[in-house]
Amino acid sequence: MTPDSDNQPVMLFRDVAKVYPLPAGDVRALDGVSFQVDRGEFISVMGPSGSGKSTLLNLMGCLDTPTEGDIYISGTRIGDMTDMELTALRRDRIGFIFQYFNLFPLLNIIENVTFPMMLKSQNAVDPERGKEVLRAVQLDEKLFTHTPTELSGGQQQRVAIARALINNPDILLCDEPTGNLDSKTGAGIMELMTDLNRKGTTIIMVTHDPHIAEYSRRTILIADGRIVS
């Protein structure tokens, strides 16, 4: 992050389009999408199936690049970046939270949480940092050395949130974070995320559940590849 990056939007989309060339003809999954996310915001992205939510999520997560328009992450334009640069950007500036938790079954909880840190430092890391983040997401300390399969869904999602936070990312990108949890556990996770946002974490959450979207402070509604509100 550059010294000026604090003054810039965390994410900026300018006339972004994504076109998938198919034998039957080009499909414009996103068309003329422009929005900006400022530091400390909590935004939910909503829309029906096929509206372009997943495409938008892939572009926001730097897993894909736009066909037209520009995307800036903390002032850095991603359109011309190499795969290696995009990967490093994902590692250092974006935290991912998935619907199905997606923890690594071969690693224990501490190793799962510190995994992105190891990618960044290329060395062994201090497990204390992992424990610190796990305590912040309110995971029972007795579970730190367990494997993911020994944890409940809610506990696994807390670990996933801790993993997403470990490298102090600019944005936390969540894809249906409560979609695989019961309502009570889901509410607990949303309260945790609200708490993280209150402490300054920028969160963008893709969801189709209006109750979950209520936790956010702003909602982007998308339909047919365009932002409608």
């Binding site: 997560g61 990967t87 490093a88 991912f96 992105p116 990618l119 960044k120």
Partner: peptide, 16 residues
């Protein structure tokens, strides 16, 4: 495959 996808999405380089 899924595990590789997760690794790549959270910042694992191809060579890793």
């Amino acid at each position: 495959v899924k595990e590789i996808g997760i690794m790549r999405s959270i910042g694992t380089q191809k060579k890793e």
